[in-house]
Design a binder for these strands. Structure first.
Length: 121
DNA sequence: AACTTGACGAGGG
DNA sequence: CCCCTCGCCAAGT
């Protein structure tokens, strides 16, 4: 896919982010993966910061460590975390949340299925 | 047109 | 668990 041909490069990110339900989160890398070729975690972050003033629930996008990466922005450091906490996302003392619990996947875009080693022995 | 800079992520030490 | 390095690709200078 040729990005130069696709003026909706940003739109796709916004549309996806808008689908994240309150109290759930997605990571930059996850979004890049769902959107496919041409998208990388970095570009997703770039695209997202440019939308600050739009109707996009940007606070629901965090990094793969389960933390907010808004350290260098003009945004107050804890704003994102505070907003998420108001939606019901719990963070520990280190500012980290449990991705296994809050991470959300759009329908049909699930990663590889579980492969539980349950009865291995 | 080249160089730098990110709301990142995986891997190694 | 923290810190560093590298790969990634659009935008700004």
């Amino acid at each position: 896919m040729n990005i130069a041909n696709d003026r909706n490069y940003r739109e796709r990110v916004y549309e996806l982010v808008k689908q994240i339900p309150p109290g759930r989160v997605m990571t930059y890398g996850q979004i890049a993966r769902v959107l496919g070729a041409g998208y990388t975690p970095r570009t997703v972050g770039y695209v997202l910061h440019a939308s600050e003033s739009e109707m996009v629930p940007w606070q629901r996008v965090i990094n793969s460590q389960g933390k907010c990466s808004t350290g260098r922005l003009t945004i107050p450091l804890n704003l994102q975390q505070t907003m998420l906490e108001q939606e019901g996302v719990a963070f520990d003392a280190k500012g980290k949340c449990d991705l296994g619990m809050y991470e959300w996947w759009p329908e049909g875009s699930e990663p590889d299925d579980v492969t539980q080693p349950s009865l291995l022995t």
